[in-house]
């Protein structure tokens, strides 16, 4: 994997690519590494009958690999940035499944919208106030210790 990523460097320089384009292409070449980690994790959770999805298991695996230095961040940074930057493109197809659910465009859709419109401020306000209280409490404690 490293051989691929590093062989791509001088080749792209010979082709006269700008640093920006080179970084872009290097990122694309790194996506198969992330695909490989996901695949290994997916096979492992299925074989071990672990109920968590392969993607989440792969996240923990990569987190561990980066933390222990078994995989240097530079091998995956560009590829991970590409995938996260364009995340919303990948869930456009599932979002369009709404076409198969015309019942949601009527009364039920309004109810769902109401549930979201009421729920979101509750989640936001509640989370922020609790974290704010926690922050004030811990910073006061830190001041006392000082």
């Amino acid at each position: 994997m490293e051989a691929v990523a590093e062989a791509a460097e001088p080749a792209s320089r010979r082709l006269g690519l700008t640093p920006g384009k080179r970084r872009f292409l290097l990122g694309l070449l790194q996506i198969p590494i992330l695909f490989g980690i996901w695949w290994i994790a997916d096979v492992a959770v299925k074989a071990g009958h672990v109920p968590i999805p392969g993607g989440v298991a792969g996240l923990f695996l990569l987190w561990g690999l980066l933390g222990t230095g078994l995989i240097p961040v530079r091998w995956i940074r560009g590829g991970a940035k590409h995938l996260l930057d364009h995340l919303l493109l990948f869930f456009v197809p599932p979002m369009l499944a709404l076409i198969n659910h015309p019942e949601l465009l009527g009364w039920m859709g309004l109810k769902l919208l109401l549930a979201i419109v009421v729920g979101v401020p509750l989640v936001m306000g509640g989370t922020a106030l609790v974290v704010e209280l926690g922050f004030r409490w811990t910073s006061r404690r830190d001041d006392d210790e000082r």
């Binding site: 992330l34 989440v56 996240l59 987190w63 961040v73 940074r77 996260l84 990948f90 197809p93």
Partner: peptide, 26 residues
Amino acid sequence: DYLRGTGWMITLLGPATVAFALPIHE
């Protein structure tokens, strides 16, 4: 029919989930 052509994008959600390890590490 639409999904037959675009289903591969949903497959990318798996590796994209793995990619969230990067911000955690950083």
